[in-house]
């Protein structure tokens, strides 16, 4: 069973609001870099970057992060596989905004932080997510949240983006 909880319009607004909040909290966009967590976090980051560009007429770099090797819940041999993490630009002294589609247990974010810290010392790191669904297992919280969606543990959240899925929207999927 699946239910659309956020339609394309609401998703558009959530991205718009996150963008404005980034400007509000950072007093502008100086030194800001966006780092999207693969796969959908990257698209979310790109959309935020496009919006920032529209408003401020200057480009904000967007990096991609594949955190599969850094997950603490992955078997050790995969976790050690090198070279999967790469950013096209240095993050040292930057204000990094980590972007993902869904914030759940917090383990992905922790892994992303590990990966980022390996690439130099940013001025600060903050977190933007399209959906916060609760059920955190680590002391992690998002600075910019598109939508809080309370969920049951057995439910899944599916974020669709036009680039990958042909349409925008967020669904709750209950496999039972």
């Amino acid at each position: 069973m699946q239910k659309e909880v956020v339609d394309s319009m609401a998703m558009k607004r959530a991205l718009t609001r996150i963008t404005y909040e980034i400007i509000e909290q950072n007093k502008g966009i100086r030194d800001i870099v966006l780092v999207g967590i693969k796969t959908r976090g990257v698209y979310v980051a790109q959309r935020i970057a496009e919006r920032l560009q529209q408003l401020e007429s200057s480009t904000v770099p967007v990096g991609e992060l594949d955190i599969t090797p850094f997950r603490d819940d992955q078997p050790l041999d995969i976790a050690l596989a090198p070279g999967k993490y790469q950013l096209a630009f240095p993050v040292a002294d930057k204000r990094v905004i980590l972007v993902d589609d869904v914030l759940f247990t917090g383990r992905t974010i922790r892994a992303a932080l590990d990966a980022l810290m390996g690439g130099g010392r940013p001025q600060s790191i903050s977190l933007a997510v399209l959906v916060d669904r609760g059920h955190r297992e680590l002391p992690i919280r998002a600075d910019f949240i598109g939508k809080n969606i309370p969920t049951a543990l057995q439910e899944r959240i599916k974020v669709s983006v036009t680039e990958v899925d042909g349409h925008d929207g967020i669904e709750i999927i209950n496999d039972n």
Partner: peptide
């Protein structure tokens, strides 16, 4: 019309999550 939704969502965000 969704400028009103934007306003409502801003208010919700300012209040924080409901849980």
């Amino acid at each position: 019309l969704d400028v009103f939704d934007e306003f409502v969502e801003s208010m919700q965000q300012a209040r924080g999550p409901v849980w």
